[in-house]
Computed example of a mutant assay.
Amino acid sequence: MKLIVGSDEAAYDFKEKIKEYLISEGYEIVDKGTYDGRPVLYPDIAVKVAQAVADGEADRGILMCGTGIGMSISANKVPGIRAAVCHDCYSAERARKSNNAQILCMGARVIGLELAKQLADIWLASDFSGGRSQPKVDRISYYDDLYKKQN
């Protein structure tokens, strides 16, 4: 599976360790930045990752910042993207199974590295279950299309 990752400066070291872990687990990684600890505008990184996932350049993406919240908000501006902040195992699983989230967002100032690895594993191993969730995800897509047409 090919993954696109990105972070701001607050999560740069965290991202580098997560990348190393994912590569050791056999994932192909594309890094969209940041490439050092200098301050960046995290929305730019989030949109790069989200657009690349939306364009099919990778199967899924992982974004990291201080809390994961800003990255999630920014990534969700890209039509067709569902990015979820997850800091517990249940949410990581449900983000995929119930919401078909293509991007996992985590906060380097909120969780530790070992939990982040565990969340990535759970999220990557989970697939969308469809069923009762399908009409809800379809409605999200409906609104994506509606607002895209208005702009």
Score class of each variant (00 low, 15 high):
Met1Asn: 04
Lys2Val: 00
Lys2Glu: 05
Leu3Lys: 00
Val5Ala: 04
Gly6Glu: 05
Gly6Ala: 08
Asp8Asn: 05
Glu9Val: 09
Ala10Glu: 02
Tyr12Gln: 04
Tyr12Arg: 03
Asp13Ile: 10
Lys15Ala: 00
Glu16Gly: 14
Lys17His: 04
Lys17Met: 12
Lys17Asn: 11
Lys17Tyr: 07
Ile18Tyr: 01
Glu20Pro: 12
Glu20Ala: 15
Glu20Trp: 14
Leu22Pro: 02
Leu22Ser: 01
Ile23Ser: 02
Gly26His: 03
Gly26Asn: 06
Tyr27Ser: 06
Val30Gly: 08
Val30Thr: 12
Asp31Glu: 03
Asp31Phe: 05
Asp31Tyr: 00
Lys32Glu: 14
Thr34Arg: 04
Thr34Gln: 04
Val40Tyr: 04
Leu41Gly: 11
Leu41Arg: 15
Tyr42Asp: 03
Tyr42Val: 06
Asp44Asn: 11
Ile45Phe: 09
Val47Leu: 11
Ala50Glu: 07
Gln51Gly: 15
Val53Leu: 03
Val53Ile: 11
Ile62Arg: 00
Leu63Phe: 05
Leu63Ser: 01
Gly66Met: 01
Thr67Tyr: 01
Gly68Ser: 09
Ile73Trp: 09
Ile73Gln: 11
Asn76His: 05
Asn76Ser: 07
Lys77Arg: 13
Gly80Glu: 04
Ile81Cys: 04
Arg82Ser: 12
Val85Lys: 07
Asp88Met: 07
Asp88Val: 06
Tyr90Cys: 15
Tyr90Leu: 15
Ser91His: 08
Ser98Ile: 10
Asn100Arg: 07
Asn100Ile: 08
Ile103Ala: 01
Leu104Glu: 03
Leu104Ala: 05
Leu104Lys: 05
Leu104Asn: 02
Leu104Met: 10
Cys105Ile: 07
Gly107His: 00
Val110Ala: 01
Val110Ile: 11
Ile111Pro: 03
Ile111Met: 00
Gly112Tyr: 05
Glu114Trp: 13
Leu115Met: 07
Lys117Ile: 09
Lys117Asp: 01
Lys117Gly: 00
Gln118Glu: 13
Leu119Phe: 11
Ala120Asn: 10
Asp121Phe: 08
Leu124Phe: 07
Ala125Phe: 08
Ser126Glu: 08
Ser126Leu: 06
Ser126Gln: 02
Asp127Ser: 15
Phe128Arg: 04
Phe128Gly: 08
Ser129Tyr: 13
Ser129Phe: 14
Gly130Tyr: 06
Gly130His: 10
Gly131Trp: 09
Ser133Val: 09
Ser133Asp: 14
Gln134Ala: 12
Pro135Glu: 11
Lys136Trp: 09
Lys136Met: 12
Val137His: 10
Asp138Cys: 06
Tyr142Ile: 07
Tyr143Leu: 11
Tyr143Thr: 08
Leu146Ala: 12
Lys148Arg: 14
Lys149Asn: 09
Lys149Phe: 07
Gln150Leu: 14
Asn151His: 15
Asn151Ile: 15
Asn151Cys: 15
